[in-house]
Design a protein around this nucleic acid. Structure first.
Length: 573
RNA sequence: UCGGGGAUGGUGUAAUUGGCAACACAUCUGGUUCUGGUCCAGACAUUGGGGGUUCAAGUCCUCCUCCCCGAACCA
């Protein structure tokens, strides 16, 4: 397939596929709806941290603007003083930047409170909004239900002057919380429930994190979102499917306001869902509050801060988002797909290192000693990244006593097991061929030491006589090894759709989502890893250096593992 | 119950708008390889169901089924 957009960055894998959003923008451009202008916005509420689902929306909003020469702003939809906070706003800004996007401008819905107030008065003056003195329960009951029409409020036909007066006094703080609301006067018979005189303002004597105590009344989402879009000059207001029914209301408000800009259009797309993952802010907060995870950035969380800490490259997330595309079909993507993008990216850029996570000693019985009787130490040249020659090589100390992975030795090898076993010859990566001559076991039968001889002719990894080995295993020199810890992560939930069994995802937590290995042996150069750097532990996977703990690595994602598949297959039989 | 939206392999997204169902992931076969990684080659769907229009239907018409969203002074 040839990418029709030659200016697209190949790294982003923009395959130029069209979708309903892009088609709409193209149509609008052709018809001159916005005079060829394209402007989008990403509108988070600062009441939680961004997660992988937001990444899809962010990538879409920015991509649409970028592809059509438009702009994309960040706007905080901060209309609810009860839940919002600066710290969330700051983390959202940081996460978007990390993802690789830069908003042209940063706006706040709360900056529009004055304009909104003025526009509300405009609607009242036109007989399109009224103050309702009823409580929430009553209003809700009067709204009716699916297939049941609503009942009009007894306050619906107040005079414009009375409404104006009441609204002014609401704003002045004369009434207690919950005693009055401003409602749009639309249609209590509407089949679309959103149109049954929705609430525009509610009274809340609360401190707003940006507005302080200036406002005792706060606009609702519906009475702020489209207005913010219009004020900023947004053309295409992209949101998720659950807002589809709100579009009629979005349009109604805008239709009835004296707008200076073109009237923006809302379009909805399916949110991103992942298998084995929850992406509800409420549920994520629950996991944090209940101590199920260590925080919003616990590497098992789907938040961007967690993925960052875990070592996910932002490019991989962007490529994933671009690859899954955008549609109106509800879908849940396999987490494996995301992981495959992470592997692809990391394979290209990650430096290779050797680390032994579950060590067992390997002694080379014919390894030479020096004049003092000490084992000779050799420095082996190891390739840093076979995918990128420019990354060069490094020297790894090698001697007669090494650590290898417990998994890489079996006293009684099963079929198709290629690694070390008595009588078997394997290659030590970047080192020598070794042949197992036996093993020492403890009283319980556990292997405590593997004994081998090495072939000095195989230095560098190949035998002059051309004989082959079936396996190459990694190792760390015992006397040079640096001790450290590795956190192995698995999915937080054990079911593809967490909560599908009982309705509560917490019932389906994976008890093995974290395994901390505390006796790991690292090759010495790993002590110099930069905080946050991601390396490949050869044959194991990609691991991110913890930003704070110098000898702690988090498993980003494992390598594809054919041997694991073989074992899985055997188990099934 | 009413309104809105949706249905294409195991999974997700495509299909020049009526013209040989493509791409990726997963899985399986084989090859290459100093990572059981990477890479390369191959295998894997008659498009939710019925009826219709047409030389030709995933695309159009019709009936049906199933799934998602909506009755917050949340967003």
């Amino acid at each position: 397939m040839t990418p029709p957009t030659p200016n697209s960055d190949p790294e982003e894998a923009a395959d130029g596929q069209s979708d309903f959003v892009r088609e709409k923008v193209i149509t609008d451009n052709q018809q001159g709806t916005f005079a060829g202008r394209v402007q989008t916005r990403f509108p988070p509420e600062p009441n939680g941290h961004l997660h992988i689902g937001h990444a899809k929306a962010i990538a879409l909003d920015f991509a649409i603007a970028d592809e059509f020469g438009g702009i994309c702003n960040l706007r905080f939809d901060d209309t609810n003083p009860l839940t919002e906070d600066h710290t969330y706003a700051e983390s959202i800004v940081a996460d978007i930047k990390w993802l690789g996007f830069e908003p042209r401008e940063v706006h706040y819905a709360s900056d529009y409170f004055d304009k909104l107030y003025e526009w509300a008065q405009h609607l009242i003056s036109n007989g399109l909004a009224y103050v309702d003195d009823q409580d929430g329960e009553t209003i809700s009951a009067q709204r009716g239900g699916f297939g049941k029409t609503g009942v009009e409020s007894p306050y619906r036909d107040r005079s414009i002057d009375e409404n104006l007066d009441l609204f002014t006094r609401m704003r002045a703080g004369e009434f207690p919380d919950g005693t009055r609301v401003l409602r749009a006067k639309i249609d209590m018979q509407a089949e679309n429930m959103q149109l049954r005189d929705p609430v525009m303002y509610r009274i809340r004597h609360e401190h707003h994190y940006r507005q302080g105590d200036r406002w005792p009344i706060f606009p609702t989402y519906d009475w702020a979102h489209g207005q913010g879009d219009a004020i900023e000059g947004v053309t295409h207001s992209l949101c998720t499917l659950e807002f589809s029914d709100h579009r009629a209301l979005y349009d109604w408000f805008l239709d009835n306001l004296p707008l200076e800009n073109d009237q923006p259009e809302q379009a909805e797309f399916a949110r991103l869902e992942l298998t084995y993952t929850v992406t509800s802010k409420r549920r994520l907060r629950g996991l944090v509050d209940e101590g199920v995870v260590t925080g919003w950035d616990d590497p098992r969380m789907p938040t961007l801060s967690a993925l960052r800490r875990r070592g996910y490259p932002p490019e991989a997330i962007r490529e994933f988002c671009s690859h899954i595309g955008v549609a109106r079909t509800n879908s849940r993507h396999a987490i494996e797909l995301l992981e495959s993008f992470v592997r692809t990216r990391l394979n290209a850029i990650a430096q290779r290192r050797m680390a032994v996570l579950r060590p067992v000693k390997l002694v080379i019985t014919n390894w030479p000693t020096d004049e003092n009787g000490d084992p000779v130490v050799e420095y082996r040249e190891a390739v840093n990244n076979p995918e990128d020659e420019a990354d060069g090589t490094r020297r790894v100390p090698f001697s007669g006593t090494l650590y290898i992975e417990q998994d890489d030795f079996r006293l009684e090898p099963p079929p198709k097991y290629y690694r070390l076993a008595p009588g078997r010859e394997v290659r030590l990566r970047a080192g020598y061929f070794v042949t197992c001559t036996g093993a020492v076991t403890d009283d319980d039968g556990n292997v405590v030491e593997v004994r081998c001889t090495y072939d000095p002719e195989t230095a560098g990894g190949n035998a002059p006589d051309g004989r082959k080995v079936k396996a190459t295993i990694h190792w760390v020199s015992a006397t040079h090894a640096v001790d450290g810890e590795v956190a192995l992560y698995d999915r937080l939930f054990s079911s593809e759709v967490p909560g599908s069994q009982t309705g509560d995802p917490r019932d389906e937590l994976n008890p093995d989502s974290l395994e901390l290995l505390t006796d790991c042996k690292f090759e010495p150069i790993l002590a110099d890893t930069e905080p946050g750097q991601v390396v490949q532990f050869e044959r194991l996977g990609y691991f991110a250096h913890d930003p704070r703990e110098p000898m702690l690595f988090h498993r980003t994602v494992g390598l594809r593992d054919e041997w694991a598949n073989i074992q899985k297959r055997r188990q099934k039989r």
